[in-house]
């Protein structure tokens, strides 16, 4: 079952690289968070601990419902054109993603060479999600993509934590989820401010502070 979910997350991650428009990107993030929720639910059933259920529920609430709707609300208010402003066209991005996956698998083989395939697969997928999150932040022009990239990286790390160690201590998970939510809100506010001051949200044109 987990393998199915992991492949789902991998596909969604690659889909994220391909999409051109902002709402598609947010929708993609929402689906990826949903799959993440399912993976956590699966772990919860296997380990039968109440804490993980609460964590999963919290994850569902924060990452699937609250943050995406907030982002969509922002996009409607900013009314800026919805193109993502790509540095690398989708084809090149995909090739880069494959290269990142290969790198993640080499990295994981250094540590988890002998452990069972499920954990190894989860490790590779989570590291790939982190790297793709990083990729989106570096190679997309819009401010929103940087927020989404950040959230995707956090998703990857959350997947890593729950996959290889069965989840962090309960309170830590709660604190991290809350923190991610606050981070999304604040970066959203700043994006709104950029739009008000600069009338665009192309981050690559923000280069006054040099040297």
């Amino acid at each position: 079952m987990t393998l199915f979910l992991l492949t789902g997350i991998m596909i969604l991650t690659y889909a994220m690289l391909v999409c051109q428009r902002v709402p598609a990107l947010i929708q993609n993030f929402r689906l990826q968070s949903l799959f993440l929720f399912l993976v956590t639910l699966d772990f919860a059933f296997r380990q039968k601990e109440a804490g993980i259920f609460v964590v999963a529920g919290l994850l569902l609430l924060v990452k699937v419902v609250l943050i995406p709707s907030f982002l969509n609300h922002l996009v409607k208010k900013i009314r800026v054109d919805e193109r993502l402003g790509l540095f690398l066209n989708p084809l090149l991005s995909l090739i880069a993603a494959l290269f990142l996956t290969w790198g993640a698998s080499v990295f994981c083989s250094w540590f988890l060479g002998t452990s069972p395939t499920a954990v190894f697969a989860a490790f590779v997928v989570s590291i790939t999600v982190v790297l793709v999150g990083f990729f989106i932040m570096v190679f997309r022009m819009k401010a929103l993509t940087q927020i989404v990239g950040l959230l995707v990286m956090e998703n990857g790390i959350f997947l890593l934590a729950s996959a290889i160690t069965g989840g962090m201590p309960f309170f830590v998970e709660i604190a991290i989820a809350f923190d991610v939510f606050v981070c999304a809100i604040i970066t959203g506010i700043f994006m709104y401010r950029i739009n008000k001051v600069f009338t665009h949200i192309e981050v690559h044109r923000l280069t006054d502070l040099k040297g």
Binding site: M137, A143, Q146, L150, I186, T187, F190, M191, R193, I194, V197, F198, V203, L206, D208, L209
Partner: peptide, 11 residues
């Protein structure tokens, strides 16, 4: 300038 600085700082 301060908005740009804040954005870079946060991200």
């Amino acid at each position: 300038a301060s908005v740009e600085a804040a954005w870079k700082y946060v991200i």
